[in-house]
Design a protein around this nucleic acid. Structure first.
Lengths: 168, 168
DNA sequence: GTGCGTGTAAACCGATCGGTCTACCTGTGG
DNA sequence: CCACAGGTAGACCGATCGGTTTACACGCAC
């Protein structure tokens, strides 16, 4: 669907958005990092808002694929925590990319729906794993709290602790 | 300590930073909203970074004073949850202002220390209330998860649920 | 009365914002 | 042979960014 240049743009945009924040990163900087002209960027994505949406959508898709792979090998609750702890395809040390994006974007931004869908999917998966919606809600609370704390404290301590708590 | 104009600047800056995000709000817009010149703003605060720091510091001070008032009347854990649910002096419906700021600011921003100090103070207060550091950590996880979810979902459902869970 | 602190009004700085446009080059497929 | 897609290079748009500067007006305290 996307050209090689389009891929490179999305790669660099993703890293920059996650690290420095969406508002703080300009399209010119993304184009330069990707070794591409602004025209190419706009030919491929049309607008910054669409590029942001593509960034979050792909982040979800990749994260989700990784989760399913892990769950196939180990279908347990703490596997969900594991996939938040480290991901093979992108940075996670600043916390959850979706929480970060939600803090910056207005509610009516086209990408906001992607964020909400991602969180809903995680909650649904927890419900599926436990068979108990109430327990899934509880686990999801722990998980969100742990990744939020990672963003502020810079360590995975809370995530490790939450993983233990989830195991009861 | 601050002049009336300085107060008005901080008032409007706080509302704008919280609602639209720190990076997305410019000093010119703040000055205009406060009915003040940019020069006055810079005479009072010196830089945008210092204004941001003052915003978060005052938010913490006010929130903390409110919490202590509530705790004096009702020295229980769920009082901490209550003060996150609604605050008499500023908006809370987009989630925790400190989590939002942490998502936008680089780790070396002068205001980041204020954020970390705020979260540390809350955790310490929970430890004081429960007398049990482990239980305090657990409650703090629930609390952070609940306010993070408020930012994404736009409701206080998770916060209400966490309050119940905290009560056991 | 004469400073000084607090403020307004507004021009100015260089840089950057998201976004558009013209001109040109190159590889591939009909 | 030629058309078209995907690119580069780079100028251009109006608006805004954080921040500084000059000039002028007010009120209060010594």
């Amino acid at each position: 669907m996307t050209t090689p240049a389009g891929q490179r743009i999305l790669d660099h945009a993703s890293a920059l958005f996650y690290t420095h924040g969406i508002t703080a990163v300009g399209v010119a900087g993304i184009a330069e990092a990707a070794g591409v002209t602004k025209k190419t960027l706009y030919d491929q994505f049309g607008s910054k808002a669409a590029l942001v949406t593509a960034y979050l959508q792909r982040r979800h898709d990749r994260w989700w694929a990784d989760l399913q792979e892990r769950l196939a090998a180990k279908p347990q609750v703490d596997t969900v925590f594991d996939s938040y702890l480290a991901h093979p395809q992108f940075d996670t040390d600043l916390g959850c990319g979706f929480q970060r994006a939600a803090a910056e974007l207005p509610r009516d931004h086209p990408a906001f729906a992607v964020i909400q869908a991602h969180k809903q999917a995680v909650r649904d998966e927890l419900t599926r794993l436990t068979g108990d919606p109430d327990r899934a809600e509880y686990l999801f609370l722990l998980l969100e709290g742990a990744v939020a704390r990672r963003a502020v404290e810079g360590t995975t301590d809370a995530l490790d602790r939450a993983r233990e708590l989830a195991a009861r």
